[in-house]
Write a protein that binds this DNA or RNA. Structure first.
Length: 196
DNA sequence: ACCGGGATGTTCT
DNA sequence: GAACATCCCGGTG
């Protein structure tokens, strides 16, 4: 039994939403996975955020309504998926970095032939986007309305009381901010969180 | 096990 | 023209 998250869950400050997303379930057609690692990004005072220098064609959905997907293309071959947070005009998003696969193993493996084991199907931001078939067409999709069959659900598993906290990965600015959150001791975390 | 580099093209300066 | 919220493979030890 589970229920889809509503607008109110997402329309809160980014740094509140990010840890609350841990242990929620991301669903796409034929597949599902538990969110076990995320990173918070916000525009106003976060030099690591795509929104830091103001709106552009790429990042405009970060400035829009909470609960939509922000999907961007990077390194010439990878897609990464964020959940938009906070209020209209206040840019914020949470990057989904790792999932524990729950359903649709065969489908994910088909999309990610390089994964040797189940826990490698979605243990990275670009890996999970590929495993879930997320790409350009999903940028701006409304999770609350389950556009394209993509939504976030609560199956009754609460977020960890003490999530692992660390700095974000792959940035050249904002590297000091401890805005990476993970469920401790799960195999799917993309990289170990120092100090826990 | 660990490390280094190449892939590949959009986005913004 | 540089940077990029990454991943994978092949080298070495």
């Amino acid at each position: 039994m589970s229920r889809r998250l509503g607008r109110g869950f997402f329309a809160r400050p980014t740094l509140e939403v990010a840890p609350d997303l841990l242990n929620k379930v991301l669903v796409a057609p034929g597949v599902a996975g538990r969110i076990v690692e995320v990173e918070a990004y916000r525009g106003s005072d976060d030099p690591g955020s795509h929104a830091y220098r103001g709106p552009t064609p790429r990042n405009e959905v970060m400035f829009g309504t909470a609960g939509h997907l922000y999907v961007y293309f990077t390194y010439g071959m990878h897609w990464c998926a964020n959940v938009v947070t906070d209020g209209p005009g206040t840019p914020g998003a949470v990057l989904l970095r790792a999932l524990t696969p729950l359903r649709g193993f065969a489908r994910m493996r088909q999309r990610r032939p390089a994964a040797m084991r189940d826990h490698e199907l979605a243990n990275g931001p670009a890996k999970l986007a590929q495993a879930f078939g997320l790409g350009k067409s999903h940028d701006g999709a409304d999770l609350v309305r389950a556009c394209h069959g993509v939504s976030v659900r609560d199956d009754g598993t609460p977020p960890p009381e003490r999530p692992a906290v660390g700095t974000r990965i792959g940035l050249s600015q904002g590297t000091d901010l401890p805005w990476r959150f993970a469920v401790s001791e799960v195999a799917e975390v993309s990289r170990p969180v120092p100090g826990r």
